[in-house]
């Protein structure tokens, strides 16, 4: 099979990996705009509990969500390793607060296995798949599914 044909049938994508607790997650690099150190995040009264607050990103107000809360993990105070990953998901720019950002990895489509088919609908929606990388499992997140339409409407009103 020629290289071009192989690329077409088994495309390679790049994923930015980050840590939350003991696990490593991956998000599509094409949706990552930048990675910031945690600076002052202004809380927003009445915001959903998974919203940490808002930041000023070169004149634009960006909502930052607590990815740990969103994933139902134990909350943790940000530290030196914490980062805000600015992402674009379906025309909405948001920041996701993560424990740390690790690296960019390349994965073939054929290396990705579908996520287990159990659990609540929400998680089934945003976990795109899993793959083995560097001796451990990488959980791939579909950022377009991270927030429901209702969540997006809530964030628009902040």
């Amino acid at each position: 099979m020629s290289e071009a044909l192989e690329k077409r049938s088994d495309p390679v994508n790049q994923w930015v990996t980050f840590r939350l607790g003991e696990e490593t997650y991956g998000i599509n690099v094409m949706q990552v705009q930048e990675v910031l150190r945690v600076t002052e995040i202004a809380p927003v009264p009445g915001a959903p509990d998974y919203v940490v607050g808002i930041i000023n990103l070169r004149g634009n107000v960006v909502t930052v969500i607590d990815t740990r809360k969103r994933f139902g993990l134990i909350p943790k105070e940000p530290d030196d390793a914490s980062r805000i990953v600015i992402i674009e998901a379906e025309d909405q720019v948001i920041g996701i607060l993560v424990d740390s950002v690790a690296e960019v990895v390349e994965l073939r489509a054929s290396e990705i296995e579908s996520a287990p088919n159990v659990g609540n609908e929400e998680s089934a929606r945003y976990i795109q798949g899993v793959t083995s990388h560097g001796g451990e499992l990488l959980i791939l997140v579909d950022l377009n599914q991270l927030l429901s339409d209702e969540d997006k409407a809530d964030l628009d009103q902040l």
């Binding site: 287990p116 159990v118 998680s123 089934a124 976990i127």
Partner: peptide, 25 residues
């Protein structure tokens, strides 16, 4: 044995582990 927990799964779902290159739930 590294067990990778997944968010939003029921309590009985302990996570994913690799055995001989195969991902097991």
């Amino acid at each position: 044995t590294k067990v990778t927990a997944l968010p939003g799964k029921p309590d009985w779902f302990q996570g994913l582990a690799r055995f001989h290159g195969e991902i097991i739930q």
